[in-house]
């Protein structure tokens, strides 16, 4: 499996990244290197190994359904580039 420049452009667009031609070339190369590195795993027989979705062997970590007051709402709001009263203000989404 290889990654083409077109793939990089597609993913960059989805991630809203503006890449220069130079960066596209560089990232295509780097991503292919990473893939090649990961491909080493194909040398092993992994038929009996279940696909790994998580790196730690844990399951069913729960919390009880208890609502607690939210203390730092003002700090969170302060992270917004623009706010209006207690709402985040965002520019128009569709022309």
């Amino acid at each position: 499996m290889t990654i083409s420049k077109k793939d990089v452009e597609h993913v960059a667009k989805l991630a809203r990244l503006g890449l220069s031609e130079e960066e596209k070339e560089k990232l295509t190369q780097q991503l292919n290197d990473i893939l090649k590195y990961a491909e080493q795993i194909n040398q092993l027989d992994t038929d009996k190994v279940p696909p790994t979705s998580h790196s730690i062997p844990m399951q069913n970590v729960f919390r009880e359904d208890e609502a607690k007051p939210c203390r730092n709402t003002a700090d969170i709001l302060a992270n917004g580039p623009q706010t209006q009263e207690t709402t985040f203000r965002v520019p128009k989404m569709l022309e």
Partner: peptide, 17 residues
């Protein structure tokens, strides 16, 4: 997270990190 699901509260009063 432990934020309340209550409807109709002041905007952004039931939010957390």
């Amino acid at each position: 997270c432990a934020c309340s699901t209550k409807f109709g509260n002041e905007p952004n009063s039931n939010i957390c990190p």
